[in-house]
Structure formats: C-alpha cells, structure tokens
Design a protein around this nucleic acid. Sequence first.
DNA 1: CCGCATCCTTCTTGATACTG
DNA 2: CAGTATCAAGAAGGATGCGG
Lengths: 128, 128
Amino acid sequence: MRQTQGPEHSRQFKPIPSNGICARLGDKWTVQVLWRLSLADERRLRFSALRKEINGITQRMLTLTLRNLERDGLIVRHYFPEVPPRVEYELTEMGSGILRALEGLNFWLRDNLPVIEQYRRAYDQDKP
Amino acid sequence: MRQTQGPEHSRQFKPIPSNGICARLGDKWTVQVLWRLSLADERRLRFSALRKEINGITQRMLTLTLRNLERDGLIVRHYFPEVPPRVEYELTEMGSGILRALEGLNFWLRDNLPVIEQYRRAYDQDKP
DNA sequence: CCGCATCCTTCTTGATACTG
DNA sequence: CAGTATCAAGAAGGATGCGG
C-alpha cells in the first residue's frame, strides 16, 4: 500500500501540445473510422462500406472525419473515376501507429470505466 | 519494407465505448490539470495554485474541469472552512493511472507530430 | 479565496436536399 | 456512389459580476 509521492511516479509525462490531434481522437467518429480500417482487408474500405459499419454516422460526418484524417496523413484516399464513382480509404503506417499508441488507454478504460461510472452515480446522488 | 496486412497487426484493439472520458481527455484543460497535480508535492494543489500554473485558464473553466474530474473519481476535493476558504485538489490513484495510460500516446505524439504538420501543410497547399 | 450565475460567441453535429 | 450546400440545434469556452 505504499504511496509513491510527487514527481517520482510521473517520469517526464509533460503533455505534448497536440495541435488538435487529441481533440480529434476524442470526437465521436475518428477512432471508429481508424479502427474499422485497421480491421479491413488490406486496411482499405470504400466510403459506403465504412458508412455501413459505423452505426449512426451521417454521410456528412463521415466525409468530414475522413478529410481530417487524410489531411493529417493517417489515411490515404484512392479515387477511381468509374461510373458510378468508387472511393477507397486506406490506413497508412502512421494511422496504424496511432491506434497502437492508443492501446494503453484502451486497456485502462476497459479496467477502470466501471469504477468511474460508480463514482459518477455516487456523485450525482449526493448532489442532484 | 514488408507490409503487414489486415487484422494481424491490430490485435483486438476494439475501442471501448468511453462514455465521454475520451472527449474529456481531448478537451482544452483536463490533461493539463491532471498533469500539474501529478507533479505537485503530495499530488495536491490549491485552486489558486492550479490557476496560476495553467496558462490562460479562466476561473470558470478550472472549476468546471475540476468538478468533472472529481465526479469521475480522478481527483478528490479537500475543503477547509477557514477564512478565507482554502480548497485543495488531490490526484487519486486512478487519476495517476490515466496519466500513465496516456504515456504511449504522448510518446507517439512527440515522434509523429512534426510529420503530421508536414502533411497538413502539403494538403493545405494543394487545396487552398 | 473559491465558485456560481449570466450572457455571448464560436464550434460541432445533425437533418435535409441537391449534384457529378 | 460519393460528396457538397444550407440551415438549425446544441455544446464548449470566454467575459464579467455577485456572493459566502
């Protein structure tokens, strides 16, 4: 039960100013898109396939999310000028990397979310 | 240059539905607050100390951020009914844990943010 | 000292309709 | 099929003033 103290346990965390990346990761759809692509064959999916897999996303939000990811170099857009047009999105190496970087947080959430939700209930009950 | 393929490299990532936690982590102040507390003596700081250390935060936003963290059990609030009143906030074990869980992402950002910013410049130049 | 209440602006998201 | 345009609703954040 020994309680480490002060800076010792937090070795140089020093949050990097992320220029909006973290806000993006915290939004409603971005991680879903990255994750779906990571599971796909060749890490590629068509727009419509993504749309079907991601429950509740609108065409507009999918487009916006994909544009931002493309701009950051986390996915690439492959456009095929057929009729009807076909567009595929592919996860880049960097895109895979950010998912791996999120694994630690993901495990932590799996383990701690129930506890957090209990705290929330307790808090909301005390001060309704 | 061998290119791993498909689901193999993404072993069971499966993003946990985080009930707002990730959105919180992506907001403007939450991680700053956690981090400042983690550096402090006994992982405790007064409201006013936090306010001084976190550049640009308003009283209102600091209060809101602290309330949310308290509600989730990531910090505890210690109230001393003196005059003038004194309030200290202390990082919990769980609060320390979420910072550790973020380290992977933080390292990744340190290494990849410059690349991302290059992609952004390139993208913005092509389509202004 | 700490925090709440109020007002206001901006950003994000969603609904819907339209186009190459 | 994939994307754009437009409008409306809501959330987030900042400024300021009051109160225990």
